[in-house]
Design a binder for these strands. Structure first.
Length: 284
DNA sequence: AGCCAGGGTCTGC
DNA sequence: GCAGACCATGGC
């Protein structure tokens, strides 16, 4: 476990001595689209149907208006705090390229988002850029999500999106992805795609299931599995990762990293986006 | 102004 | 099986 202690402090929960965790590196690395940075450096967002503001001071995390029980039940798994990132990073750092990527964002963690939200947001992500993805997701939630006590909006589930017309999704400027979202809604709402079974289903079959949705190809399926279903071995290849592989791993990505390839991918994604010219010939 | 974006589908060889 | 046009939209 990557923290020492979680204790209530008034209405908040303080998590002491959290290791391998940085809010910005985790919440602004292109894996989730609903968090915003506040003026004081904390982050606010909606996940798991809840509003949360979480700050970081020294080695501690402060979960505002959160009971310790809710931290343990909701946010500890969400932020993947039960995984030993020290061990993951040590393994990855045996490779010089991965060491550079990990050193660039040593506090990045792969969040465990809800399956439907991950599937839906990564359908929206296709041939799109991150700022605009965030905008579309925000309008989707404001338009169709449940209003929460703090004024935020939950991510709308398939039951809330069932019955929408393509025009409704054109209105939030989702472009050609509107019918893809609706096809995912249809399959999930009809019970023809049971996302909860994909946590443990054999990977090849899980991929096939997801790719029955129109607009879901290998990359989006891989994202849904990695970010939404906790399948750390999944390895989404977008244009950035394709470039990184081309520039940094002409001989192929190390097979030894397979069990945590998705986490490696996330370090690499964040690194290459901030070092677009890196061709791998660093002297360090 | 134009290229590009956490891609996928469809068509034509 | 594989290349290429096409898809909406807007960030930069």
């Amino acid at each position: 476990m990557d923290y020492e202690q979680a204790m209530g402090m008034g209405n908040d929960t303080v998590v002491r001595r959290v290791r391998h965790f940085d809010l910005e590196q985790t919440l602004d690395c292109g894996q989730c689209f609903r968090w915003r940075k506040n003026a004081d450096g904390s982050y606010s967002g909606v996940a798991l149907g809840r509003e949360l503001t979480v700050g970081q001071r020294g080695g501690d995390l402060i979960f505002h208006d959160t009971a310790p029980g809710d931290f343990r039940r909701l946010w500890r798994p969400y932020f993947d705090l039960d995984r030993d990132y020290g061990a993951v990073k040590r393994a990855l750092c045996s490779d010089s390229v991965m060491r550079r990527a990990v050193d660039f964002c040593p506090g990045m963690r792969v969040a465990r988002q809800e399956p439907w939200e991950a599937l839906c947001t990564f359908i929206i992500s296709q041939n799109n850029n991150i700022p605009r993805i965030k905008g579309i997701v925000q309008r989707l939630c404001e338009g169709f999500g449940r209003l929460l006590p703090g004024g935020g909006f939950a991510f709308p589930g398939p039951e809330r999106l069932a019955g929408l017309q393509p025009q409704d999704l054109a209105d939030i400027r989702s472009g050609f992805r509107a019918r893809y979202i609706l096809d995912a809604v249809r399959l999930v709402h009809a019970g023809e795609l049971e996302l909860d079974t994909l946590y443990t289903l054999e990977l090849a079959r899980a991929r096939e299931s997801l790719m029955r949705v129109k607009g879901v190809g290998p990359k989006v399926a891989e994202c849904a599995l990695l970010y939404g279903l906790g399948r750390a071995e999944c390895f989404p290849v977008d244009v950035w990762i394709a470039r990184a592989l081309e520039q940094l791993y002409p001989g192929g990505f190390p097979a030894a990293f397979a069990p945590v390839a998705g986490i490696a991918q996330q370090y690499l994604f964040h690194y290459i986006r901030h070092h677009p010219g890196d061709s791998g010939n660093s002297k360090e």
